[in-house]
């Protein structure tokens, strides 16, 4: 972790008072509709794209269950751009996989787009992955034997779209990410940054409400990373909700809200500095606002995790 990252990445150590604004205290400090916190919470509940409560996840290992996520609460409203940060091994990917309906939590609630994910069948989950969520991986995950157009069009196959329309929409998406001329190329013929663009085009082709990206710039140099982030900025401006894992502060600055994980807990949740002084943005919705039980303090949790 570079020195530039430390103020953001290790907030608890540096400035505990500032770095725990997500609790009930956070509302008071910001004086956002303090008198009507209950109805606000209700409003945000129904409004959230993602709402997670008391989420636990432990992996079964030969040495017994290994807890990775410990009582995570988070709410993300439509149109938000959230950066998930934290050191390696803190459970970010595990969290993202659960958000992406690729994995199931061990305990807790996950409400995606108003639907409780735990109650959905496998086919309904597939449908969510196909239509509601676009997942972008660190390793691009394109199918190596298919040309770019077919890769981008693949989600449409499972959506039941006709061949000609599939092709047209895939082409449009490729153009949109600046790769219109590469439709017939194979993934191994293009650079990593270009592959990630194709992966984003694939994630977008079904017009999802939500993009989940797990370290999308992790395999790219910083310049290419910036290009990818510019693309995400643009998507967010169009209203797509974006949750993005990164441990680079420069990347995280593109988001308006930053959630930090440490050892399976959210230890910090607040606006990124860069966007806080951008008045054109609508007021931020904090995860802490939706904390279901007010007496469950975030400070305690954070400290607990630090122990």
């Amino acid at each position: 972790m570079g020195g530039a990252l430390s103020p953001d990445a290790l907030p608890l150590a540096g400035a505990p008072a500032r770095s725990v604004p997500a609790g009930i205290g956070g509302i008071a400090a910001q004086s956002v509709e303090k008198r009507d916190a209950g109805s606000l919470r209700e409003a945000h509940f129904s409004q959230s794209v993602i709402r997670v409560e008391g989420l636990h996840k432990s992996y079964d290992t030969p040495a017994g269950p290994f807890p990775v996520l410990k009582d995570v609460d988070l709410s993300i409203a439509p149109g938000e751009f959230v950066a998930v940060m934290g050191p390696s091994g803190s459970g970010k990917s595990t969290f993202m996989n659960i958000l992406g309906c690729l994995d199931r939590p061990s305990a807790g609630h996950y409400v995606l787009d108003g639907r409780s994910v735990a109650e959905l069948s496998k086919d309904e989950l597939a449908l969510l992955r196909n239509r509601t969520i676009g997942f972008v991986f660190q390793g691009f995950n394109l199918l190596p034997r298919m040309n770019l157009e077919d890769n981008v069009a693949l989600p449409l196959v499972y959506y039941g779209v006709e061949r000609e329309e599939r092709r047209a929409r895939a082409r449009k998406m490729l153009q949109r990410v600046g790769l219109g001329n590469y439709a017939k190329s194979l993934p191994n013929r293009i650079s990593g940054g270009q592959q990630q663009r194709v992966a984003i085009a694939r994630a977008l082709v079904n017009q999802p409400r939500l993009i989940l990206a797990d370290e999308p710039t992790g395999n790219l140099d910083s310049h290419t990373g910036e290009e990818i982030m510019a693309l995400f900025d643009e998507l967010n401006r169009e209203g797509i909700t974006i949750v993005l894992v990164t441990h680079e502060a420069d990347i995280a600055r593109h988001a308006r809200r930053q959630v930090s994980f440490l050892d399976g807990c959210i230890v910090q949740d607040g606006p990124t500095e860069h966007h806080d002084d951008n008045p054109s943005r609508p007021p931020l919705v904090r995860g802490g606002v939706e904390t279901p039980s007010p007496d469950k303090g975030r400070d305690g949790e954070g400290l607990e995790c630090l122990e």
Binding site: L102, D123, A126, L154, Y158, A203
Partner: peptide, 16 residues
């Protein structure tokens, strides 16, 4: 297996 994982991730159903 990995290809199958990718397909599942972008929304293929078991029956697909």
């Amino acid at each position: 297996t990995r290809e199958i994982g990718i397909r599942l991730a972008i929304g293929s159903r078991e029956r697909d």
